[in-house]
């Protein structure tokens, strides 16, 4: 086991508001790692720091041993480190299938490949992945007219289409019909097991994250509060206090 994402002593503040202070954590290759913490504890800020949405104040971030804390978003994405958004982002005017095809891994294509058309192979892959997330029936509908939960699933499928080495998911179950959550957990686990994608997941739903993750980090007030296996976290008094609001 080796660390694929390493966050080393990262701090980030916005004006006077400190969002992350001296956070160090690592995500092991091939695992599902959870990131939990009460609202405003700096989880999304940390994600944004990792994928390059803003500069960090101090510290460093490594992906596959490479320093990425100064790279812009697209370069990081082309290294194979992808993220989904808390507020889902898909191409609303295109169909589901087109959304999938545009998500083909451009980092694996040369410039000349851009002038090719997508063959049956790509269509099959797109449809298989849509099937995988349960959107096969809706694949020719305009993506913008799907429900929020379906758009979320589509975004997940698009991320898989991109064949990332590692995927950062920001609250994958938020806004999804509770009856579908079990199915989603299953798909995340299969994506991890079958496609070998390392997952780093922010999640508020404790049942989901405890069932799924191999290792969990808990943030509170912008600092790393606790880490360990799901069982450790569940019995950690500090975590319980943080969630219940005790200090």
């Amino acid at each position: 086991m080796s660390a694929i994402i390493e966050v080393d002593n990262v701090s980030k503040s916005f004006g006077g508001v400190v969002a992350n202070t001296g956070i160090s954590l690592s995500v092991e290759r091939g695992t599902i790692t959870g990131l939990i913490g009460p609202n405003g504890s700096g989880k999304t800020t940390l994600f944004n720091s990792i994928v390059g949405y803003h500069p960090i104040d101090s510290g460093s971030i490594f992906f596959e041993g490479r320093e990425i804390s100064t790279l812009p978003v697209q370069k990081i994405a082309r290294l194979g480190l992808l993220r989904t958004f808390q507020q889902t982002r898909i191409y609303g005017q295109m169909t589901g299938v087109d959304n999938m095809l545009i998500s083909l891994p451009h980092r694996k294509m040369g410039f000349a490949d851009a002038f090719g058309r997508n063959g049956p192979e790509e269509y099959e892959r797109a449809e298989a992945l849509l099937e995988f997330v349960g959107l096969y029936q809706k694949r020719f509908l305009r993506a913008g007219s799907l429900s929020f939960g379906q758009q979320k699933l589509l975004e997940f499928a698009m991320a898989l289409m991109n064949e990332p080495t590692s995927l950062l998911l920001d609250e994958p179950t938020a806004g999804i019909n509770p009856t579908l959550i079990n199915g989603l957990i299953d798909r995340l686990q299969r994506a991890n097991a079958e496609f070998g994608i390392t997952l780093f997941v922010i999640e508020h739903n404790m049942r989901v994250i405890m069932n799924m993750a191999d290792h969990i980090y808990c943030l509170a007030h912008g600092q790393l509060l606790a880490q360990g296996s799901p069982a450790d976290i569940q019995s950690d008094q500090r975590v319980i206090d943080a969630y219940l609001g005790a200090h």
Binding site: V73, Q74, A77, L82, Q93, H106, R107, M109, A114, F115
Partner: peptide, 30 residues
């Protein structure tokens, strides 16, 4: 051109450039 991947990519830039970047498309090149 508009039926190739190139066409799809520039449409993606139009619809949501930030998403296109986040998906690793070489936006400047396109």
């Amino acid at each position: 051109l508009y039926t190739t991947r190139f066409g799809a990519a520039i449409n993606a830039i139009r619809d949501d450039e930030e998403k296109a970047e986040a998906m690793g498309i070489h936006t400047l090149q396109y």
